[in-house]
Design a binder for these strands. Sequence first.
DNA 1: TATGAATGAGTGTTCATTCAT
DNA 2: TATGAATGAACACTCATTCAT
Lengths: 232, 232, 232, 232
Amino acid sequence: MKWTALIEDVLQRARQESGRKQDRSRRTEQQILDAALRVFGRDGISRSRIADIAAEAGISTSTLYEYHTSKEDIAYAVPTAYLATFYEEFAEAVAGKTGARERIRLYLSLIADFARRNPEWARLFYLEIWPSVLVGGTELSKSVDDFSRILIFLIRQGIEEGEWSAGIDPYETAAILIGSLNHVIITWLLYRRPKNLTKAGASVVDRTLAMLSLEKAEHDKTETAKPVAKAS
Amino acid sequence: MKWTALIEDVLQRARQESGRKQDRSRRTEQQILDAALRVFGRDGISRSRIADIAAEAGISTSTLYEYHTSKEDIAYAVPTAYLATFYEEFAEAVAGKTGARERIRLYLSLIADFARRNPEWARLFYLEIWPSVLVGGTELSKSVDDFSRILIFLIRQGIEEGEWSAGIDPYETAAILIGSLNHVIITWLLYRRPKNLTKAGASVVDRTLAMLSLEKAEHDKTETAKPVAKAS
Amino acid sequence: MKWTALIEDVLQRARQESGRKQDRSRRTEQQILDAALRVFGRDGISRSRIADIAAEAGISTSTLYEYHTSKEDIAYAVPTAYLATFYEEFAEAVAGKTGARERIRLYLSLIADFARRNPEWARLFYLEIWPSVLVGGTELSKSVDDFSRILIFLIRQGIEEGEWSAGIDPYETAAILIGSLNHVIITWLLYRRPKNLTKAGASVVDRTLAMLSLEKAEHDKTETAKPVAKAS
Amino acid sequence: MKWTALIEDVLQRARQESGRKQDRSRRTEQQILDAALRVFGRDGISRSRIADIAAEAGISTSTLYEYHTSKEDIAYAVPTAYLATFYEEFAEAVAGKTGARERIRLYLSLIADFARRNPEWARLFYLEIWPSVLVGGTELSKSVDDFSRILIFLIRQGIEEGEWSAGIDPYETAAILIGSLNHVIITWLLYRRPKNLTKAGASVVDRTLAMLSLEKAEHDKTETAKPVAKAS
DNA sequence: TATGAATGAGTGTTCATTCAT
DNA sequence: TATGAATGAACACTCATTCAT
């Protein structure tokens, strides 16, 4: 699969037209999502009451049920909507970039920056949604999986481009890149430290990427050494 | 603070033996914790019902209240108990090791292995407890913090021992080490992949440690290069 | 009151044409009644939702309210409409018949046959409407009462015609005739047994009527016997 | 199957030990059933609120749920309990009777009398439960079926005893006997007429039984006539 | 120590009905 | 005439927790 095709695919999954046409509906829907995010972020999903969400959205409980069939449904709709925005942002920003390394750099930095700009969503996503993607099969869980999918794709691309060693496990590399970043983000969400998440995110991304380059260099050295040894 | 003092401190906090003396009580208490772990792991903390835990433990709900004052109390007791076991195991195993690098290696590998041996607890800990350490101030949250504390301590020690660059941020290094490992563990919890967690854990630990060494080497080169450059 | 007057009266009450003139309205009204019958028959009145009825009728819920003021209103309109049809059918068919016995025979047989031809309505009528005619005073409840009224009238007529004993209670006789038939109909509705309701209905009607005749004969014998006894 | 075996079977199905042992429980259970009967009888099952039942029983809603898992469950428990009582009463009373005719007479008369003595239950049973035995498979629906089963059994026995014609359909005969009686009972429930249900019930039972005897006599005559005709 | 019984406070969800367009 | 949108009033059911024995 090509890069453009992958992005298209991801975008398509993320964009979920609500089917509603009328203007009023659209506005209400947005109000609900905003309200839900605020309430979920404040109380946590399980402790949130839909009555609160409705009140926060300025509508009645029953109206909320006109838009979402259950509490669970809302709990999924919120991250889904934001995920879509994130992927849109990324798709736009990545257009100018070539080379796997640069793309990964952009991707991971954007993740951190997006979390900083949407802290309530990030809290919800990293502390509640992600851990419970257990409930597989949902559209959402696929969208979450896309997170890794993109990274894995780019790592493989980087290997092809000779950026990183061919011998390494892409999944492990992905774990290092995204795991490190996640840890920084989660720490920020829990303790608001380090102060500047965007900077800290970029820093850890640059560092891990640099380490991967060093690893490649080291690897190349060893590889080259062997033939020489044989030749002698 | 010295290493031994740190470990002592951590152990002390973790060991929170409940004052129960009688044998029967102890057995019942253990049954409760086992049952709670199973139920929490299966249904998630918020969806678990204490009636279920009591049933699983083979006692009546009211009896359960003789041992724990509330649901929250149980939710804390379970991870606490395991955390204590983990720290005990680590304290024992680390006794023979010297050098920050070796200790970190042991520490992180043991984390992965412990998760593999106690998957239900790991599920609970990584997907529920950790993300919600929000509720700060508790003894538990301190025990969880000890996780990072030990690592940070060892990284600092490593820096002192000249193992890693002095210029780096220990917290970022910790984020890389533990974030990578966590990601591997969580992936395993959610998808049971990679198959062998102990091996995969050790692998990612070795790799990140190796990368840190390369980083140090690179750093040293640059540092040494400069004076040379100046000298020229 | 004369037979023709009774029938006229019954017909008039049953025919409660709604004032709608326009063609489209009429068609929609019919669609609503059909839909309501289907939904009521399927889910039972109390568990039916008007949203379902509207959907089944292919219109919006709000449109349904243009035709009926409430759920109760629909619940009455459906049986009323069918009851009217039934009485029309009966009025037409009975025109050629003379004699109370023949008329009763026709009446009861038609009841069974009508139920067979309109099983959904029958289900609604026998299992929901009839039992709850509790809510008296309505036009509908009067129409339901007409059911018995007609029968009672004919039984009295039969007594006058010397068909049955004068000493018997017409209400009890009616209970026997219609109770037996109802039981057959209800059994059919619940278990679809006997297979052929029209036949089974006719059979039980004929049998009960025959039994009434035997009773009359027996009665006459006893009555005649007595004077004879006295004479001796 | 023998008569005694049939009765045993019916009784066993009807008697449903609640499993509760303690005295307080038993009393509460009874209070619930009494309250439910009152409320159901007053408002109809679907319009009854369990909060009302609980209040009527002098307990809290949640306590009610300790005894019954759902509203439906209560709706079944009430008629079931009374049905059990009825079968007990019948079993005791029938002990002294021999002969199918006498037994049927007792059976049907007892049905009417039982309805008179328990009018709230009768209202519930005849106007709500019976019509909706649709929901088959329940223990209750079997207990309801036992109603007919007993009658059919006795009719067959009567045929064997030469009480009634062998040529007739027992199910139709049952429909006549029980349908007539039901109609009388339902009329009484709806309009409180005739005043004395016990008497009216006994009357219609006696009359239908008498009619069946006349039918048999008539049948015998015809049967005997034929051979004679042949002999000539 | 153990438990059967009881409960208060809560909450997600339904549905008939109205209203502005 | 038709309907999309909105809602108030209910209501069944849950569950952590207490208390008398």
